[in-house]
């Protein structure tokens, strides 16, 4: 009763503000545990959704998951409130999404970072290992000590995928390169622990590393800070993080979650959305390394030429980067 009147109210409000009837297109995003302002993975999704909102004037509903059971609940609530284009951010939503997508067959779902094999689900996965390979090369080329570092969030398959690509990239440039690897923790707190990230970075710097790649969500902020404090270099992840500590961030391994989210919304609005699996790698510009005014001085023309050559070789299949997930 109350819910019905609430729905009626919001319908009335929508009718006044937008000419588009909500029955036609209603969008929603369910962010994962990190929260939408993690400066990294979820935030990239947020930017994609915001871009869509700015361009079309159509707003979207959103929900940030804080408990395991809320993934199911968040997706279901969105579907029930009439959202017919729902984006689930993060692999952990795969199982709940599978359940909810079966119940709400009329709704369209896009999931980032996992594959759910249903007709009304579009799965977007990235070849993080390819992007990590390139930043691994950049790290090894920028390193004077021949030692580089990797700091992950939790020790889960996805992060091993980042790490493996990075190591292969570093060794491709310098076969003798030494790569230190640390994981931040064993609970989801590891994705948002800048203090621990900073400590791990300092200890890796002390052991001789001079470039560190952080694939740890919000924890990376601490790694970037430690790079600045120690006058060393860090590599950002997911979003372009070069501007966070200008001059101390060598580059960022960007994963275009924002583009994936934007495209999903846009195609759904234009009735061009399709289910199935989308794999975005270097070729599709789904991953890559960032260049902007903040790291111009750090990546020399020679380095850039080598990175572009490697990029072309990976796309052409001449360099094979091992996919940790496929290795299993």
């Amino acid at each position: 009763m109350i819910r019905a009147s609430f729905a009626a109210l919001s319908l009335a409000a929508l009718a006044f503000t937008t000419p588009v009837s909500p029955a036609e297109f209603s969008a929603a995003v369910v962010f994962d545990m990190g929260g939408k302002f993690d400066k990294s993975f979820n935030e990239a999704a947020y930017h994609g959704a915001e871009r869509f909102k700015k361009e079309t004037g159509i707003s979207y509903r959103e929900f940030e998951v804080t408990q395991e059971a809320q993934r199911d609940q968040g997706l279901r609530n969105m579907a029930r409130r009439g959202a017919n284009m729902i984006i689930a951010i993060g692999f952990a939503q795969a199982t709940p999404l599978e359940k909810v997508a079966k119940e709400y067959k009329h709704a369209r779902f896009t999931i980032i970072d996992a594959v759910v094999d249903l007709p009304n689900v579009q799965s977007v996965v990235f070849k993080e290992h390819e992007g990590s390979f390139l930043v691994g090369m950049a790290a090894a080329m920028a390193s004077k000590t021949g030692k580089v570092g990797f700091i992950g969030g939790m020790d889960i398959p996805l992060i091993r995928k980042f790490a493996l690509g990075y190591v292969e990239g570093a060794k491709y440039v310098n076969p003798a390169a030494e790569v230190f690897q640390n994981m931040t923790g064993t609970t989801p707190a590891a994705w948002n622990d800048p203090t621990k990230g900073g400590e791990l970075a300092r200890s890796q710097f002390d052991r001789g590393a001079d470039v560190i790649y952080a694939a740890a969500g919000g924890t990376g902020i601490g790694v970037l800070q430690a790079a600045k404090d120690n006058k060393k270099l860090a590599i950002g992840v997911d979003s372009n993080q070069n501007h966070l500590q200008p001059g101390f961030v060598l580059t960022s391994m960007i994963k275009r979650v924002d583009v994936a989210v934007y495209e999903a919304f846009k195609s759904a609005k234009d009735n061009k959305w399709k289910g199935g699996v989308k794999v975005l790698g270097l070729k599709e510009d789904g991953v890559g390394y960032s260049m902007d005014e903040h790291n111009k001085a750090l990546i020399t023309a020679d380095m850039k030429a080598k990175l572009d050559a490697a990029r072309a070789d990976i796309i052409a299949g001449k360099i094979k980067v091992t996919d940790y997930m496929a290795k299993k």
Partner: peptide, 13 residues
Amino acid sequence: VNVLIKPGQQSPE
């Protein structure tokens, strides 16, 4: 991650 995971997926379940 190493023992109980159902092989071939991202999420450790």
